[in-house]
Amino acid sequence: MSNQTQDMNQKNGKLVIKLVAIVFGMFGFAFALVPLYEVFCEITGINGKTSDTAAVYEAVEVDRSRVITVEFITRTNTGMPWEFTAQTRKIEVYPGEMNQVDFYVKNSTAKDYVAQAIPSVSPGTAALYVNKTECFCFNHQPLKAGEEALMPMKFYIDPQLPKDIKFFTLQYTLYDVTASAQVVAMNQG
């Protein structure tokens, strides 16, 4: 009898260890969902975010058979008092062609600010085909009190862009990240 109990307990113990491993695995999986989601978005464009690293423009064939209209929208979020406008509201481009659009920012307040621009594309699928070789949204953008600046964004559209997309919108929202940028600066300094 007690031998049997002993066996049973060993058996139970082994199974419990396996199950607890699943539990920890799934807890880890919840956090793994964060990078997985990003990868998933990069593949499917599910959330309409463009890549946050610079693309390289080489050996891209320009497709002159169709024209894509790109619309730019600029917004500043709560707590971000800058003026922020796109110099071009709408442009028509050929896929594969290199383009530049400038964005104007002005900090007319008496305080220094650091901004972060967050891009968003609609329809989201188009985000996969927007390749930026240079963008102010890759980095924090500091402006001292009263400063203004022209921020360039260079991009081309991947000629692989699905034929049914003829028009898309690229929005930048400017966030005030002064506080967190200072923390980072302090940690590095």
């Binding site: 199950l19 807890f27 919840a30 969902l33 964060v34 966030y175 923390v183």
Partner: peptide, 29 residues
């Protein structure tokens, strides 16, 4: 056992986003 840990992960992210400055769900970050 497959999904309760995922819930635990989600509330943990809410906790760190709110109190410890992470930005899992914050567009600005």
């Amino acid at each position: 056992i497959a999904v309760m840990p995922v819930l635990a992960g989600a509330v943990t992210m809410v906790l760190t986003d709110k109190y410890f400055g992470t930005s899992f769900f914050d567009a600005a970050g």
